[in-house]
Each structure stands twice: as structure tokens, then as C-alpha cells.
Design a binder for these strands. Sequence first.
DNA 1: GGCCAGGACACCA
DNA 2: TGGTGTCATGGC
Length: 221
Amino acid sequence: MDQEISGVLLKIYERLLEKYGPQRWWPAEERFEVIVGAILTQSAAWTNVEKALNNLKAAGKLSPGGLRSLSEAELAALVRPSGYYNVKARKLRAFARWFGREYDDNLDRLFDNDVQPLRRQLLAVYGIGEETADSIILYAGNKPVFVIDAYTRRIVDRLGLTPPDRSYAGYQRLFTSDLPPDAKLFNEYHALLVRHGKETCRKRPRCESCSLAPSCPCANA
DNA sequence: GGCCAGGACACCA
DNA sequence: TGGTGTCATGGC
């Protein structure tokens, strides 16, 4: 992470890190818990996800076998606080079944895959889209893929860096082509973008720029 | 009381 | 291929 990079995105990262400090997303969690959290956090506030994770822990079901041992209705009741609980129960069961069938619940084997094959396999599992797949690969697998979420898109747009096709891959390329492929850097950077999005842009829906841009109206936010 | 969170999928034209 | 509807709790 200490390589010399001239890109504007690294400079933005440095400014964010200076402003907010390390966010430490999923710093010392179990990898399987990170995967479950990545699915539960889809369109949900993290505080609600924590409640759902705590329910699963308290029930002793926060494991692949534990998830498989529950009916969809039982699982839905445990993850209820995270919202969309019926769909999320189906997604968790789909992942747990696939993981048992294909990898015998072995996380080392799962993450022994290279990034692209791993990504393709995850995307084929029901309930895992691009952002969730990348979150799993980065935050549980510790591999350098850049996670693009709604905050990231919003901030990139406000910086005037929107990729022509506005695709997930387009936004992702923006970061990966300008930064060294460092999982720790990608981890912290994404978390910082979310933090910044929460602290500034969301409170200023009409702000067309961003405090990261020199001419931003919320520069002192 | 309304808005929105660390999205994905089904359906339709 | 792109746009829209659906899924839903909890904090502010």
C-alpha cells in the first residue's frame, strides 16, 4: 500500500483516511460471518444486520450446517431485523447448500480459487450479485477486488468521473486501473467512501459535487 | 410519519 | 437490454 501512485483516486483515498481515520470493516470477524453479513446487509442498515447476526449466534446457527439445519421460516424469523427477511433466508440457505455441496463447507478451499473464477461461481449462487460477490471476495477472502456500492457511484458521479456506460465494471475499472491491487487498501477505501457518503452527500441531496472535489459546496462538511 | 440503509431478482416491453 | 416492481425492518 506504500507504492507511489500518481492517480487522483489515491489522493482522494489519502484525504479520506486523514479525515475519518481507518474504518476497520470486518477487522477480526470469522470469514463465514462476514459472508453472512454481506448477504444480510443488502439494502439494510448495518445496525439491523448486527441484530440478525446476533440472533443467529445466540441460536448457535451461524455456520453452514447451522443455516442448513433450519427451515426457511425458522431462518427468516432469526434474520427478521435485517429486513427482507424471507428473501434473505432463501439467499442464506442457497449459499449454505451450495457451499456444502461444492466445497464441503471448507473456506480455505473456496478462497483458494483465483478471483475471477471465484467471482463467477459466487455470481451463479441465488442472491449473490456483483456487489455482494465482491464484498465476500474482499472482506472474507482478503483478495483485491474493489467493491462498488451506491455511495461509491454517487461520489464518483459527483467528482465528474462517471464511466461512459455507468456499469458496475466501469466504476470498478476506475479504481482498479488507478490503484495497486492491495486488498487492505481496497477494504479501507470502500469503507471510507461509505463513511463519507453518509456524512456528507446523503445529507445534501442537491449537492452536485462532493467535498472531495475542489469546488464543492460542502467542502467544509 | 416519511425516508432510507454497506442489493438482487423477476417480469415486462 | 433497460426500466420498474417487490421484498421489509428499524433508526433518525
